[in-house]
Design a protein around this nucleic acid. Structure first.
Lengths: 206, 206, 206, 206
DNA sequence: TCTTAATCGAGACGGTACGTCCTGTCTTGTG
DNA sequence: CACAAGACAGGACGTACCGTCTCGATTAAGA
């Protein structure tokens, strides 16, 4: 966890109790993964964390914000960036596979679903989620593509490529369908080898 | 709406009031789009529909199920199938563009976000959502691909192709990012022309 | 039970089902004595009696009326009249003792309490209760007193005497206090021997 | 009202809002006397008192307990004790007359009926009612009798005497019959002059 | 070192909605 | 036509949380 520094936005407020803050985030995380988003309540967090409700309301404006903060308070969540070997296609494919594995795991899928739901009615949460979650993921992959020699995709095309890969994974997770890393890898490879899916895969196998 | 016959699954229960059923679905739809999912309450629906709460609880086990039923009770929701000209790539691209337009519209996006959130804690809802929403969309596109002469994608590859296109759109909607039809079209074309994105688009423009 | 003739007020309505009527009164009685007045519901009676709710509402205007009818539908409830030996004091004392025993029993006390509560908000029930329950009790004792040679109580005084005896018993029952027959007997004797309580009892013992 | 100090039994619970407590008791009283016990609802009290329902449920376990507390929260309810002139018979007769007047009044009768009904299913309420209502009434009269020189009634006989007087009044109130003070006075005098009703009353008039 | 003001735990408060139970009315076959 | 069955509009139940509001009791500056 990157708990110690997760609110450095504008100099952590004076005299805030670190003990309380950690207990709240930990309790929130546990309760979200134990009971799901529907059952999640501020009172439940306060009770589990051994904290007064006011202490939560003092620092988090909204249930949804607390949910987002609690779920995002983990830096082990996703592989942010592709590796940097010479082979763009291989690097991005590897990244796609890792991302699928991370978000396809039980915990990763649950987290993604709850984050998505928390952001539904709330563009503010959505912004924060993008800033700390989807943004870094996109940026890592985009940077890898941007720096690739011999790849002539323009900016819009690079975004489409990356979002298609992420989208495949996200869609399957949200649809409660199985997420196979190999599918994400196949998609990445197909999008980057300059050929449609049908041929490169053929080639790979044959 | 296909309200009149939307639940003929196994002989509508005994002497259920059609009047009440329609009023409930209509009220739920209105309230969802007026106030969003957070503010949505069974009591609100009952009041707006002029119906007792028990009448809702009698037929819908859960808030989430009602949300799903209400939102899905519209057959104008999405373009289910691609056209059937001779050109697969063109047909699927057209379908992708239409889908992006439908889900990218304010109402479509709101519906998609609320459906997703409603399904978060609830695989049962997810199943229903797939059955009536994502399933038909996938199937339409898959069928078009399956019947295409000269296309050598196997079943898994066809699914990847379709889900990447849907995923791109869904991801952007849920991330509160702009959904351009042209992006979906570009992705479809790139996946189906046997070339990477970089070339065909080049060619199209140049 | 005097069930067969308990509604002869104005020629039992045409085509009324005797089976249903009896089942309802029996079920109501059972439920009242099993669960008490608070838990008593029309639906409960309908279910236990194997009867539609409408059948109850068709013949009983109100929950309270049904309660009264059900509880009063027993002629074993109380000893209506004193015996008629030559000795007024002895006869009335015997009656008082019997009444105390009847209303002091668990079942009698429960019945009395529930009847009283049912009549609280409802003078109509109160009237019916008097007509079928307290009235006959009072009348029997009043008649015995009225016909007694050598007793010079006027009508108002006879009512006071009788109501004091009934009142002692009723008060103790409603106060959840023990009701001893001997107390009722002592009161009756005291009121009728022309002496205060202190002497005749003294005399009796000494 | 003795509202300010009516619950000092064992140190009023922590930081209970006196404002809310008073508003609740006042609202309950008003609603009981306006609409009767049948119509009485916790929600109605909460609304009238400007209070959340939970605040009522936090301090009163049951509708019946609230009814009892509200109705008993008045020390003007009844004349607790007989006067103390030298003449027992006169003192107790005066007390009996006052009691009949108090309980025979519209408000007194309504209160008595509602208290009785509230205690029907609930020995706990009955106990509280006795402790704060019937108990003090009995005790006052019993004490007057106990201290009377020349009166040789034993303890049981004193209770019978007192309960007969109270019982006469209570019975008539609950039976929705007229309660004349003169009747209570006559009974008291008859029971205490060492003579039956027939003579002393004769003597009084003649 | 002492003061003092913000933060803490606790939890009562006015509210809203929950999901259940029951009311009294109604509608639909059955006998 | 009364009946068993049970859906209906409505309303109260008792519970769970919401977000706000006191209360002392820490507790970490700054005087």
């Amino acid at each position: 966890m990157n708990t110690a520094a997760s609110l450095p936005e504008d100099a952590r407020p004076r005299r805030r109790s670190e003990r309380a803050r950690l207990a709240i985030l930990r309790a929130a995380n546990e309760l979200l993964h134990e009971n799901g988003l529907d059952q999640f309540s501020i009172e439940g967090v306060a009770a589990r964390a051994g904290v007064g409700k006011q202490t939560i309301y003092r620092w988090w404006p909204t249930r949804a914000v607390l949910v987002a903060d609690a779920l995002l308070d983990r830096d082990d969540l996703v592989p942010t960036s592709p590796p940097q070997t010479g082979d763009v296609s291989a690097d991005v494919s590897a990244w796609a596979g890792d991302l699928a594995a991370a978000l396809g795991s039980a915990r990763g899928a649950a987290t993604l679903r709850m984050l998505t739901a928390a952001a539904t009615d709330n563009p503010e949460i959505s912004r924060k989620l993008h800033e700390k979650f989807s943004g870094p993921i996109q940026d890592g992959a985009l940077a890898r593509l941007a720096g690739a020699p011999g790849l002539t995709l323009d900016s819009a095309e690079r975004r489409i490529t990356v979002d298609a890969i992420i989208g495949l994974i996200v869609f399957r997770v949200l649809a409660h369908q199985e997420v196979r890393s190999s599918d994400a890898v196949a998609l990445a490879r197909g999008l980057l080898t300059g050929l449609s899916l049908e041929d490169p895969l053929r080639a790979t196998r044959g």
